[in-house]
Write a protein that binds this DNA or RNA. Structure first.
Lengths: 355, 355
DNA sequence: ATTATTTCTGTAACCGTTTTCTGAAAAACA
DNA sequence: TGTTTTTCAGAAAACGGTTACAGAAATAAT
């Protein structure tokens, strides 16, 4: 009994190409050639080899194969978490494009911790990933910037690529492909939409310093206000993270605090919008009848809430990241930097302000 | 110019342990020992080696390392798609547990195609994954069953594990770890909740033959009806896939077809519930005032809709899958089979029926 | 029947590590 | 100082494939 357990623990060796060769009565070279299809073999030999493969349930050792020449093509994606719908959609795009280009997809998460992200990049480099795709926000201090720069250059030196996805470049000395969204443009459009409906007191939910995507969205919000000559009121910008319960908290606190001093809400993402929506409902306030609202992301919750929101091409960003990285790997030159456009999806969460 | 491009295309070789050794004036063995920490080295030697490593930006080749002994610990997850929140949560659990146990996480998607799933399993076997975790539904015919059985046995023979996650066993001759949900139990609870509120005409949205999770949920629905001695009416079971727009379609068609012949809805998942919700709203019907509703999954949309639903421990399933697979790998014996419980989360989408 | 081709298969070097075995130098002891 | 023990570092053999090179067998050409 104990023996059986330890036997299982060790795990019997998997069969090797040599065993296949012996069983088929040929050399390992012949087996290799037949399996990789790199050279025509006599039909009878081929049949014998295939039979041996089947009988032994042989599969090649990807590590050995990678070592010997045929590189094991793969692409790595590193993100905060898989459960955030935004990241999930990007990951889906990456995976799809990677599969389409015959690449395996390695995945790792960081929980938003820059240290873990750096460790992941190093790890993926060991795995010989052809591209390491970093998705989403981090707060990047100088030490981070410098170390990530080293990694980027090291990757570039061996024909691999660092890709920054949905975040800005780290500077000219950090050779990385960048695929960004036009956060500011989207926020400008969303806020303008509210302003055009006559709203002037627009609550902005989800401000947070250091997070570049949020900062971009906030900038768009402010620019729109300025363009409509609406004075900027800092008290309308509420700080919080990009989660449902934070949206709920921010709105609940605001309503509890006293007078309702806004007629519309710009949420920096749909999750926040969802939480705020519920908080409003609990205070008997309805969207869009009592309060207008726009979100950002166009992820599933906005469909349920019938929310007007800014559409981001999540999957396309993932696909583009992979495509550009592999193209650039082949072509060389300066790493491309693209900004993908956004557009407003108008549903039914905004009403003209009647005063 | 052309030269520069081709130079980039080839990608200069990455530095090897030999180059580090030469630069530090020691042998490769010493470098290896210092880097793996497998043996104490003299401080001065150590310093020289570390400096060389830094200067060359050296990282070990994971493939060579795996080949030479230290196996490259990894766990593979294979799922239909990453964007489905359910799969995303499971994937998160898998990734978290894998990281906690010091494993890399390989990921692949199949789009629900059994052939692609089989190919993925083979592929992951080549990569020496310690566990291959299959998540979610497939329609399994006899040929699939037989081939997957072969793979499972081949994996078992080398001390690796096949894990079926959220789907039933393939039979006693297919050695696989199974981590299931109690779909029927959850559906029983959800339907009973509606029945206890006095509802008798309960629409079941999302029936689909061959999909085991759906079949389990449907069975629970029927069992609850039987337990309350409510006659079974097949016309109340509407066929559709598990997506938002399908929920919308099913409900829209139902309402367009004529009389409203139900007072409550049991959606086989929250996405369907969300779509149905919107369709109801467009017909001026409100949840829960006019129609009661329960969903299944307890994923984000249910929070936005304030939906009473069946909670599934998605992440826990992922974590359990990894944990059991690795434990079993170490211990041996018969592969474990666990069924994780569910519970009803009561929010505000059900009202007692007043007749 | 020879010779010249063509087609197929075997031998062996190599990919970049880890690790066992062994030897040299340094430290501890007498 | 000579001997024994301990520390540290090197040489070389794996690991499991691919592939350049060369040789044998089979076919085609003379």
């Amino acid at each position: 009994m104990a023996r059986r357990a330890s036997e299982a623990a060790e795990g019997r060796r998997r069969s090797t190409i040599r065993e296949v060769a012996d069983r088929a009565g040929v050399s390992v070279a012949t087996v290799s050639r037949i399996l990789t299809g790199s050279y025509p073999a006599a039909p009878s030999t081929r049949a014998r080899v295939m039979r041996a493969v089947k009988e032994l349930d042989y599969v090649a050792n990807a590590h050995a194969r990678a070592l010997a020449g045929t590189p094991n093509k793969s692409v790595a994606i590193v993100l905060n978490s898989v459960i955030s719908p935004h990241y999930a959609h990007v990951a889906q795009g990456v995976e799809a494009q990677a599969a389409a280009e015959g690449r395996l997809c390695l995945i790792g998460t960081t929980g938003g911790d820059p240290e873990r992200e750096l460790a992941m990049v190093k790890f993926m480099r060991e795995q010989h990933a052809e591209a390491v795709i970093l998705v989403g926000n981090v707060v990047a201090d100088e030490s981070y910037r410098e170390r990530m720069g080293r990694y980027a250059r090291a990757l570039a030196a061996i024909g691999s690529r660092l890709v920054l996805c949905g975040r800005p470049s780290l500077g000219p000395d950090v050779p990385a492909v960048v695929v960004e969204y036009d956060h500011a443009g989207g926020a400008f459009a969303a806020t303008s939409h509210l302003l055009s409906a006559g709203h002037r007191r627009i609550l902005c939910l989800g401000y947070r310093a250091g997070y570049t995507t949020v900062e971009g969205r906030l900038a768009g919000y402010r620019r729109a206000l300025a363009a409509h000559r609406v004075p900027h009121d800092p008290s309308l910008e509420v700080e919080g993270t990009m989660e449902w319960h934070e949206g709920y908290r921010m709105m609940t606190e605001r309503l509890a605090a006293g007078a309702r001093d806004f007629t519309a809400v710009f949420a920096v993402n749909d999750l926040i919008a969802g939480g705020a929506y519920r908080a409003l409902a609990e205070h008997g306030l309805r969207v869009p009848h009592d309060v207008s609202m726009v979100g950002f992301d166009d992820l599933p919750p906005s469909l349920d809430l019938n929310l007007t929101t800014v559409h981001l091409p999540h999957e396309e960003v993932g696909r583009t990241a992979v495509r550009l990285a592999l193209e650039h790997e082949a072509r060389g030159g300066a790493p491309p930097h693209v900004t993908l456009g956004t557009h407003l999806v108008v549903r039914d969460s905004v009403r003209p302000l009647v005063s």
